[in-house]
Nucleic acid binder design. Structure first.
Lengths: 154, 154
DNA sequence: TACAATTTGATTGCGTGCAATTGAATTTTG
DNA sequence: CAAAATTCAATTGCACGCAATCAAATTGTA
């Protein structure tokens, strides 16, 4: 009695592990593509935003990547140490730190051009499939964040 | 020309980020459920296996969780320090380390009983939806690992 | 039995990821 | 304008996660 329900509920655990281990698999798939660029995957995510906009605050990066300053500050310092970005206080609000690309950082965009295509091939999926799974994951993420964050809809 | 293709290919990047950020969201959803048990999510994964089998080698844990000894050894030492598991060399092959539950480790199973149900509710998904997404993610993971691992199916 | 190759776990070093705290700058409020 | 509340980044401490390396045990082979 209830045994079937118990087994069914374990599916949530299994789905979480599937997400968890797929994230690791993505990381490993990116590694050989990003190593030649001298970037880790989270660093690459930051560079993608900067290649699109060039000047972004730490807060904005944190909002878009869902990461806090405890993660971003040291990551950005490493990008700075590698000569890819600069960090300076905003003139209008000195609490803000503006991250911007250096010439080397901008130049890296060209070298990274092949990455999305190679990743696409590595997934073995169709564009429709990619798009659908992305939507489903973002919907799930929304549910999860609203469930433990009192500010959410749930 | 090719612009549409370029945009389309970025979907792979976006899917990866969706997986990446959903994994973080799962972690945060688990945290309030696992904190009272004194477990982190990776530690919970190890305990799930042990609650099912009790005696497992480090190699077997690594195979099932897709983690290596660099991650598992310190994690298992923390579980041991917290009195939940024991670690001993196998008698038949002293290279192997057998991880087993203590009485406290076995007792924790009962306290963890509510976790899967609460997680299931947090996903807001149907059992069919959970099952389908899990299958799709595992298929994707298989593609990704075979793409950069020469030992795979190609 | 010797000796090389393999298996297994431990260690080291580096880079996230996050909760909690701190401190400076800004905004709000009386 | 001055005090309180808020915002923002930095810092600290802890726990993964992984590549590379090491050491011990086992297996294969002559």
């Amino acid at each position: 009695m209830g045994k079937q329900k118990d087994e069914a509920r374990k599916l949530a655990n299994q789905l979480c592990f599937a997400v968890y281990s797929t994230a690791h698999a993505f990381n490993k798939a990116y590694k050989p593509l990003l190593d030649p660029l001298g970037l880790t995957y989270p660093q690459y995510l930051v560079m993608l935003i900067l290649w699109d906009e060039d000047e972004v605050t730490v807060k904005e990066l944190g909002h878009r990547l869902q990461l806090d300053s405890g993660t971003l500050t040291p990551l950005l310092k490493r990008l700075e140490a590698n000569g890819l970005v600069t960090r300076r206080r905003s003139e209008v609000d000195e609490r803000r730190v503006v991250v911007a690309l250096t010439a080397a950082g901008k130049a890296l965009d060209a070298k990274a051009g092949e990455v999305p295509h190679k990743l696409f091939c590595a997934t073995g999926m169709t564009l429709e499939g990619l798009n659908r799974m992305r939507e489903e994951l973002l919907a799930l993420r929304g549910e999860l964040t609203s469930s433990h964050d009192p500010g959410g809809a749930g």
